[in-house]
Design a protein around this nucleic acid. Structure first.
Lengths: 227, 227
DNA sequence: TGGAATAGACAGACCTGTCTAGATGTTTAG
DNA sequence: CTAAACATCTAGACAGGTCTGTCTATTCCA
């Protein structure tokens, strides 16, 4: 509560919109670099950063504007409302997350290894000191009206994750791939929730071990019983 | 959480002091009933309900006061600040949840069954239409300053859950009970996160199946390899 | 008599969203 | 190449709320 007001200068670090870390993003739009970002993208970036750090309700429009160095009307011309800004931030964050997960999985062609790489990637992410967990999960905690566009964005993301994981699970050719996918999604959600408290990669590593056991079990049951 | 301890005010409509649902509570304080709740408890109840439904930042003090029918000074005399009110709501919610989990587990004396009952209980909770997931998890999403008293309350809760689950896991006498406990905690957190989106008991049931597999695996590995 | 609760005003800040009037830069027409 | 038309962005004031927290004067009840 009671946060420093009108934070022109960020927490410890930059003023520059240059992200001071290898972006770890997948799927940044294909821009040929060196081109200055549009005001729109700048707003999305700053909004995402502040929403991630402080929460959605706790972050005022003015804080975002100060940070982006952009006039209020630019925001309202581009997004129309704070709610719509939140929705677009969430959609973009989801896109980035799904992209990252896709890249992690693509480190192998074997579906078992793909799942392992999923949690390895998560562990790398969790290791970064600025990692605050999944923004979509945070939004789900802060917005509970099932009809709001924010909730719908969250559900879209959820469906995307499930699709990605289900695709991998089915490739294992185990007996009940959709159940396996559900269990892996639970482990993903669990580690994303846990990292918010422990702030280290441990939940990802633990989830990886659990996923390996579940995977092995699912595939074992698919084969005729030995003996 | 939701833990309708002494929930004086029903869900949508207000004012009547009869609690309109089988309380599902564990560990309501031992009060000999019929005694009117203190203003303090009334405030905690209403605050918990509104925080659960709307979020912490989105819920203003005045809304809590209106709902409780209590003067502002009563709140500030009892709690001193909104932040402290949040902390006490969280501590009480944690107590309720841990109590519920303890009762669920106590439905059996076999540790394997205790874990199963844990997720069964979760499923019963998730089945209630007013279930909005775990308030502590929501708080973790909304408050990220690691030094804030709110965060400390969340960490206390986390430690309590871990203690409870670890105690059960150790009773199984499997080889690595603490790892097993970590995995079960991940499944708990995962299903608590998932219920926020799907609003049904399915995550609890899926987590139960996953937990059974992990448990069986952990115990199997403890025994000498067959053959 | 005294402690607890009350209503209600109040301060000072922040909130979202609107409006205006002017600056800037880019495209198009002559 | 110039000039007009256009869209975008700017700063800043503003409206109408809401926020947390304080204060006072009064009432209730033990």
């Amino acid at each position: 509560m009671n946060r420093p007001v009108c934070l022109i200068v960020p927490d410890i670090d930059d003023i520059e919109p240059k992200s001071s870390d290898p972006p770890m993003t997948a799927s940044t739009p294909p821009q040929p670099t060196t081109e200055p970002p549009t005001k729109r993208d700048l707003l999305l970036d700053c909004a995402q950063e502040l929403f991630t750090k402080e929460g959605f309700h706790a972050t005022g429009i003015d804080r975002i504007l100060d940070r982006a160095g952009v006039a209020k009307m630019t925001l309202y011309n581009n997004f129309g409302s704070k709610e719509q800004l939140i929705v677009e931030v969430l959609d973009r964050a989801s896109e980035g997350l799904i992209g990252m997960m896709g890249e992690w999985a693509a480190r192998s062609s074997d579906p078992f290894e793909q799942v392992m790489h999923l949690f390895d990637g998560l562990g790398e992410w969790f290791s970064r000191p600025d990692c605050r967990g999944c923004l979509l999960q945070a939004a789900a905690a802060e917005f509970s009206d099932p009809d709001s566009p924010v909730t719908q964005a969250i559900q879209r993301h959820d469906a995307r994750v499930r699709t990605l994981v289900t695709r991998i699970a089915r490739a294992t050719e185990c007996r009940a791939p959709d159940d396996l996918a559900t269990q892996i999604c639970l482990l993903l959600a669990g580690s994303l929730s846990a990292v918010r408290v422990c702030r280290c990669r441990q939940p990802a590593d633990a989830a990886k071990r659990a996923a390996a056991i579940l995977l092995e079990d699912a595939c074992r049951r698919a084969e005729p019983p030995r003996l």
